[in-house]
Design a protein around this nucleic acid. Structure first.
Lengths: 152, 152
DNA sequence: CTAGATTTATTGAAGGTTCAATGAAGCAGG
DNA sequence: CCTGCTTCATTGAACCTTCAATAAATCTAG
């Protein structure tokens, strides 16, 4: 932990305000579309996408929670809702009796299909259409390095 | 709204995952410190900081909500809590009968003083210590442009 | 001038997230 | 083995945010 200069200078403050602005506003912007097109919030969408990209559409709860950048408790509550809607199913892990596996159902895949096209369009519209290829890669690299610190 | 290519290529996806990771995890990381040091969540902290930087420590509710990247309804609920703790006070705007002004109290300033040093340290630790000056400015510029799209 | 539209703010209800507690399953050392 | 420690997951309560409804003040078009 750094232990120096008390506050941020002008350039740092400008950067921080822009970053925190994106952090605070992006989820809400994404959720408008997801709610309208597929009645999902952003975290629910991440869960379904995470499963879709996994082997056999199946993943351990705790791995899924990490992938989706949420707590296990949060995922557990969300999984109950998604399961009650038939979008995922849960079952005991054969290899480790402590673990639960979650799997995307056909209905879950259909729901995802309703959300995804509009979601991608929106992501392009909000982020990628604004950046050229160099800027996009630079943004990714910087975000990746900051993310590594947050996760540590 | 762009209306092209259906999904993100590999580099775009890597960028998106890093960006969304920061977006999802940063608030939680900040709140641990704020809760510990000053029993505030991040939005409450933003409200107090916003007022501290304003003329006469006073700002219209709707301007404050925009500055803090939240809805007016959210601010209204939070303002009730902060006011009941004596950290801010609210009063009618003399110029426009529809508006309410919020002002930071002495107690609010003290509470902020408990939170701020640790908050700045954490922000430096998570973000600015990772970036050199060029990278910091680049990040700020890119975030600013993306934020402009989100706000529009 | 005034009727309707807009801006500003608050409120209650519904829904989602966090936090702490609980418990089951596996692991590690004696 | 069996005791304590760790991992994995769920749960309920408390808390926070969102959404829709409400209402007051201001603006605007005719």
């Amino acid at each position: 932990m750094s232990d120096e200069a008390p506050w941020l200078d002008e350039a740092e403050m400008a950067t921080w305000l822009a970053l925190i602005g994106v952090v605070m506003r992006l989820p809400g912007a994404l959720e408008v579309q997801l709610r309208r097109d597929a009645d999902l919030n952003h975290f629910e969408y991440c869960v379904l996408v995470g499963l879709e990209h996994a082997e056999d559409d199946t993943m351990r709860m705790s791995d899924l929670a990490f992938l989706c950048n949420g707590s296990l408790s949060r995922l557990s509550h969300v999984a109950r809702r998604l399961e009650s809607e038939g979008l995922i199913e849960r079952f005991a892990c054969p290899d480790d009796g402590r673990s639960t596996l979650a799997r995307l159902t056909a209905a879950g895949r259909e729901r995802l299909a309703k959300a995804a096209p509009g979601h991608v369009k929106l992501v392009r519209n909000l982020v990628f259409d604004e950046l050229d290829d160099d800027e996009m890669r630079q943004m990714g690299e910087l975000a990746k390095r900051v993310l590594a610190r947050i996760q540590a």
